[in-house]
Amino acid sequence: MDHRIDPELLAVLPYLPTVDIAEPAAFRAAQRARTQPPQRPDGLLVEDRVVAGGVPVRIYTPTAAVEAAGAGGALGVLVWFHGGGFVFGDMDSTDGSCVATALEVGCVVVNVEYRLAPENPFPAGFDDAWAALRWVAEHASSIGADAGRIAVGGVSAGGGLAAALALRARDEGGPALVYQVLDTAVLDDRLDTPSMREFDATPLWSRPQAELSWRYYLAGAEANAYAAPARAEDVANLAPAYITANEFDPLRDEAIEYAVRLIRAGVPVELHHRPGTFHGSNAIPSAEVSRRALEDIRRALRAAFRVG
């Protein structure tokens, strides 16, 4: 497999951490120790809040975009969920991405910290995500956002949460969403796609870790569509979607299959499969293929928010 990985990504493989969630608390501590302090560039207001009865969020507002909107103007808002297999990750781990998205798209970003398994199995994290989304819809004007231009998105487990939110928002008649970004999303607990069966030793995420992740998240319960969106029987009338799949990722095929199902149901979908990549590689800025992946997502968000 190594000879097929993008050369720029291959060069950083020896320096990547090993993901092992067999001991979740210990792995979280190790991850926090590796997380760099958040950078605060000019032109951005950042505020931490606790909303909806106990959900921590971090709100990023680009000042230049606010000034351009003028008096009474409001920005599109992306409600974002970090990755980590439902087991690790926090607001700090995705802070840099949220900063860049707010500045480059010209939108408000609400970075949500949801409860983690195994201490808090499904539906705890999903309930937090839903509560945060509803709070944004109900209080958009208070954060300079337009309640008519709300998108959800996330990476890995966060992408799974975003997909589940799009399903519930459709099922319950709101909040109305203009877009969903599912970046290498966790979607299917059945672990039975060709890529999931094949990739048991791939960088950063592999079938053994996926098995543990779902065991922790479901805690023996039967999955429904809000836990595993691939189980949804009806995917019509969902928000337009941007979906990514990486070649050497056990999650590859569930992303592609979900995208195809949405397309067949009449949902507008932009699907990107990137050769030579693996799970998590989209966040490696030294590789051109990774930079392009992030630029494409932000271009799509600008179009969804009608920016520029």
Rank of each mutant, 00 (worst) to 15 (best):
A169D: 11
I243T: 00
T94R: 14
A129C: 15
G174L: 11
R32D: 02
R207P: 06
D6F: 00
P118A: 13
L10P: 02
W214M: 02
A236I: 01
A151H: 04
H82L: 13
V307L: 11
E233C: 03
A201Q: 09
A228M: 03
V136M: 01
S97A: 14
M1Y: 09
S156W: 03
L45Q: 15
R252Y: 00
G73H: 14
P285R: 04
G173L: 09
D192V: 11
E104V: 13
H3C: 11
P24G: 03
D249R: 04
P194S: 10
F122Y: 15
T193G: 06
Y60I: 09
L218R: 06
D188R: 04
D2F: 13
A140H: 02
F122L: 03
E288F: 06
A68F: 11
R292H: 12
P250R: 08
G76M: 11
A33M: 11
D92L: 11
E211A: 01
L161D: 01
G173D: 05
A29L: 01
A25G: 08
P229A: 00
A232H: 01
E8Y: 13
P275Y: 08
A221V: 12
A129W: 05
P208M: 08
G76C: 10
A30G: 08
E211H: 04
V186A: 09
Y15R: 14
